[in-house]
Design a protein around this nucleic acid. Structure first.
Lengths: 166, 166
DNA sequence: CGAAAAAGGTTGACATGTCCACATTTTGAA
DNA sequence: TTCAAAATGTGGACATGTCAACCTTTTTCG
């Protein structure tokens, strides 16, 4: 196993590290990513960022590059590179966007649609598995809590500016 | 700003992506890391992984490499490289470990202690800031919820093994 | 209109994270 | 004791993520 990390980490055997919120979130995020990678690896060769993009496009809400990029929550640079990789691997095709010539449209190929059909049920099952691990009360407040934290994590206004004394 | 990502992301303007738990956690984790990096950058040149290691050592609970590595939740490879970088930068010194010759001891230098003294209050303030963004109920259940999710994220047993049909 | 600002995408440099193979030491069991 | 298994750290290869500079198109506003 490469699960070398978790022994102490999330169980907080050591000290008050178990009370550090950012640390716990990071560890959880790492585990979720690893779990997702496991599932992806069992059904093909899509990487996690590639899958995120395909998943967004598969909703069919828009094929505009900016919409997809922002929905997937990926930064411009990584998005550009990942889309190119998807195109090279035959998962998507791109076309110029009439209304905004800075953007472009992205369309799934049959290959991507097939991959999505195989993977979506598994990842949906995982989502249910995760939610089932929470109590009903936890399920209710987890999303608002995450949103509140994201808000609080967006700035460092709460700190006075560093001393200008040298 | 490079805050190009968050516009749609966490506010979920688009579709049901706002209901995807792993996605939300990942986004939150990303924001928290960015916020931490901002604070670190204002007070020196420590990287986030470097700071994590110093913080653990500063608790004084143990100087054994394995304990520190697991407490910091960093994998073996990255830990090895980061500790070397810390040593090169004069933040830590290492010494052989008598009882277990595979491990080694890590000790903070004055430079690291000074950096810790400057940074710890700021990061503590952030922790308070984050917790203050939650309601008392949310504060109470956030840690158990994270723990439950981490548990559920540790395996993919909930999926039946992939079909062996080809 | 026309210039400045903003948004979009690309690229390169670099940091961070993951995975694997290896050598050494320790542990555990035959 | 002795040998296999496990744990530890290291290093290399590679994936992912971040940041900044740049060019083009669109939007904003005087």
């Amino acid at each position: 196993m490469t699960d070398d990390v978790e022994d102490l980490a999330l169980d907080g055997d050591g000290f008050d590290l178990s009370l550090l919120l950012p640390f716990q979130i990071t560890q959880l995020s790492t585990k979720l990513a690893a779990q997702a990678r496991l599932i992806l690896a069992r059904h093909g060769d899509l990487s996690l960022p590639q899958w995120r993009i395909i998943r967004v496009i598969a909703t069919g809400l828009s094929n505009r590059s900016t919409y997809i990029r922002k929905s997937a929550g990926i930064d411009k640079s990584q998005f550009s590179k990942t889309v190119n990789a998807l195109a090279d691997a035959g998962y998507v095709t791109t076309a110029p966007c009439g209304e905004d010539q800075r953007q472009f449209e992205i369309h799934l190929t049959g290959k991507a649609i097939a991959a999505h059909a195989r993977l979506a049920p598994e990842l949906d099952a995982r989502q249910r598995h995760l939610l089932a691990a929470l109590t009903p009360e936890q399920r209710e407040m987890i999303f608002p809590a995450i949103h509140a934290l994201a808000q609080a994590a967006s700035s460092i206004d709460f700190l006075k500016t560093p001393e200008f004394e040298d």
